[in-house]
Amino acid sequence: MHHRCRLSAAFAVAAICLAPSAFAQQEDRSSLTIGVGVAAAPSYEGSDDYRVLPIPQLRGKVKDFAFWTRGPGLYVDAIPNSDPDGVDFELGPVVNVRFDRSSRRNIKDDAVRLLGKRDIAVEVGGFVGIGKTGVITSAYDNLSARVAVTRDVAGAHGSYVITPAVEYMTPLSQTAFVGLGVSADYVGRKYGRYYYDVDPAGAAASGLPAYGGAGDGSGFKKVNFSLAGGKSLSGDLRHGWAIFAAASYSRILGDYAASPIVSVAGSRNQWIGAIGVGYTF
């Protein structure tokens, strides 16, 4: 299984696109996996209300150059994965679209809905990382670490997001795999101000207390732990149909957890669960 899937909180949903098979790393070929599923996720980041949403996903490999979607984000690895010793250096662009609180009808909490919707953010940047295949359990398991850095260019939060992540994947057989991941989000001052602060006008409209602590500086917003697995329906994860499931737990941290949209109207504990089906060509 190609290891470049992202197993983090938005990102348990990407498990439906976890790649064809670890054995595919030994082949010089192109592939395409298309997935679709459903996820139960918080109605906004920090919410304790949940909603069900569809999750289309896509990943592929062309001449050892990989691309994949991660929720509403697109990643392209510009360095080919062709090292015979299983070492993979990663470097490439990232484009992510953030829809958090961009639609009032998707916010279930009445007070947070009265704070008003947020503009859609378009976050553009890049990532760098390194992975190694054949580490612990077999010649096909993979351990990788990477950092993605993006900045909003659409004038929404107007800040940056830095996401370090460490992931481990191992095939259980030619028909099944499991993966684990841990990641964190470090955000800029404007991000905290835009999504977590409550100004006096917002406090008057919503009944929530005014709060300005999240916009005082940059910091780690949350840490995430995730688990994913998949099972082939055709006898080989490299080809045909497969089913996937994933779950993640995120903990909102520090001044962001102290925001009234979390501490009063929501919860610092965030869960995501997803199931889906994918087809590999």
Rank of each mutant, 00 (worst) to 15 (best):
T137I: 11
S138N: 14
S138R: 08
Y140R: 13
N142E: 07
N142P: 00
L143F: 07
A145L: 08
V147L: 12
A148P: 00
A148I: 00
V149R: 07
V149K: 02
T150N: 09
T150L: 10
D152H: 00
V153M: 01
S159F: 00
V161A: 13
T163H: 05
P164K: 11
A165T: 10
Y168S: 12
M169R: 14
T170F: 12
G181Y: 09
V182F: 04
V182Q: 08
S183D: 08
A184T: 10
Y186F: 15
Y186L: 12
Y186T: 11
V187F: 06
G188I: 04
G192K: 01
Y195I: 02
Y195E: 01
P200I: 11
A201E: 12
S206M: 08
L208I: 09
P209I: 09
Y211G: 01
Y211E: 05
A214W: 06
G215M: 05
D216E: 15
V223Q: 12
V223R: 11
N224E: 15
L227H: 04
G229V: 02
K231N: 09
S232T: 06
G235Y: 04
G235Q: 03
G235N: 06
F244E: 13
Y249E: 10
S263A: 15
S263Q: 11
Q270S: 13
W271A: 14
W271K: 12
G273R: 05
